[in-house]
Design a protein around this nucleic acid. Structure first.
Lengths: 190, 190, 190, 190
DNA sequence: TATGAATGAGCCTTCATTCAT
DNA sequence: GATGAATGAAGGCTCATTCAT
């Protein structure tokens, strides 16, 4: 591939990211249906028409954002998949999760918007499963190693609990005692 | 009040409920924005215009549904507010919660739709607080009596966990091991 | 006609008038299109359905109001039609006109609303002509007797001027010097 | 500014005018409320949606038409504001007024529609005052210079009379002797 | 006579998407 | 690539009118 073409691809990718960031911010703030393409284009400082040069449709845009976010999320954790977690690794996992949560509030708002809306969830659930299953599996193995009777249910409860904590944090970040709650979770589950 | 007038009011109330049920079903299935008044009217077997005889707007409709659901929910629990919960009462509370969850899947889908959508949440958050605060208070007192160091954070974690469990159950009721999870929660929190 | 039937007719006529008064007030205040049958019914303290017992349609209602107003207006002046006006009679005519104007502000608002809206004017223009032509004729004869070269144009100008004065008075009754203007008109035209 | 951008703006302005002309014609013919955006769009040979690219709402459309018309009207007269009118200037003013009246029948229909409809008048009355006050002032000074006792009332009567004449001409242009009436006005007021 | 629930056509407006430039 | 004018379907909502009671 000639250098100029490479550079071109890179520029294109950067513009894609600019659009996705603008869209993410607005989606998180106003919801999917209440955010128009016009608003996204204005916020990304491009024209409406150009949007369609990068994304086929509004749906494809939100799908891309969610997929991208999932990928980023996975990349933060992908070291520890081959063997059973140690307690230290599990604690690291918890810390990392809360850190990611805190640093990507917009994305998690979008995430809940997506899974709470059946019609949007459909667009994304396959990818979501790809993300969730390895997590649940790793967790399940961890709890099995700790001697839990029903490690799979333990893992699912743990995942659900993280969902619930994220959701409540997201709704009112300033009044949710995220740090204390992290400690309690560690006490109860490690 | 003459009987006929009383009857009129009753008929009106019944029709309101028919409309709200129809709307709840569609909202839960397709989301708020993706459900049109036309669809609701058709599903409730009334004309579009009649909706507006019973509800001022689409927003007022979803607000009414949510408020009604919250009230129904509260009525199931209002016995145990005056003193600290015993362990048995706490267990009963957990059982009841899971029972209500199972029997009102549509409503809980709507509930998550609502809290995940900023623009809709705004319409309802005062009422939501009225619902949540007494629960958190009662839970907090319970955990305090059990000797927890940070009873309020415990209560909020517990509430968040229930949210997360509900959410995951709602997304895929058939594959979420709700009963096992209830047992684990009891073990960990009573 | 038996007495009861007579009484019945009278009651009916009274109710008609109540409805027309209520409608006139609202039409004058908000305009024809912006006043709904519901509002009129509420203001007249009857049900929407009953309105249609007295008037076939919203259009028939406004037509009735206008016709009634014209008839009332005519009845105030019908003495002086058979012969040429004296100067005193002409002055009396001017005084009377201004008095009627002041006492029926709502009606004159409606009147201008009607003639300014082609689609409504159509419904009423025949009756309007029946009202206007005798006036113009009488005025024209008066100006002819005074020796004006073009008495018909004089009469039409005079009529138009009264329209204009009414219109301006109606728009802002408190700041339009109606009494001074009456004097000027007398000076210029008697 | 590059030529192309300039041209864009010009094209945009032209389209705005096309829409306003189409709307003016229909408003004058059928009234404000009875003219739908669909009808305007069809008459302007554009799509319904495009209207909203040029005007925020139906109300903003009529406001723009009225403001534009007033501005055009003012531009025809703005020479004679600094000192008292001579008789010749006053006669020129009358001639000009009648000429403008004759050449802009649609606009004057709209004008009367607007001032006869309280809800529409509100949208426009500030601008209307800006138009009327200088006229009344100039007229008032003219009549004062002629030695009238009550020049302000004279001026207001004169303005009202022009309103009334316009109104009657507008209702039935073919049968209203506009030219003769102009002569009578000159005789009576110069 | 009197009510107001019910209808449905039609209105204003929004918005994802396309396309000429 | 980039723009934004243009389209048209669809949505929320209003309202004159009808009709069962």
């Amino acid at each position: 591939m000639p250098r100029s073409e490479e550079k071109f691809k890179e520029l294109r990718e950067q513009k894609r990211i600019i659009i996705m960031d603008a869209a993410l911010e607005l989606f998180a703030e106003k919801g999917f249906a209440s955010t128009s393409i016009s608003m996204i284009a204005k916020h990304a400082k491009i024209s409406k028409g150009l949007m369609y040069n990068y994304f086929d449709s509004k749906e494809e845009l939100i799908i891309s954002i969610v997929h991208d976010g999932f990928d980023k999320f996975l990349r933060e954790f992908d070291a520890n998949k081959d063997s059973v977690l140690t307690d230290d690794e599990f604690e690291y996992f918890i810390d990392k999760t809360f850190e990611v949560l805190r640093n990507n509030l917009h994305f998690w708002k979008l995430y809940f918007m997506v899974i709470a809306q059946p019609q949007v969830l459909k667009l994304v659930d396959k990818k979501l499963m790809e993300l969730v299953i390895p997590f649940i599996t790793v967790l399940s193995e961890y709890f099995a190693a700790k001697g839990c009777k029903n490690p799979m249910a333990h893992a699912q409860l743990f995942g659900a609990m993280l969902d619930g904590v994220s959701l409540n944090y997201m709704i009112d970040p300033d009044n949710f005692p995220i740090e204390e709650i992290k400690q309690i979770i560690k006490t109860k589950f490690i």
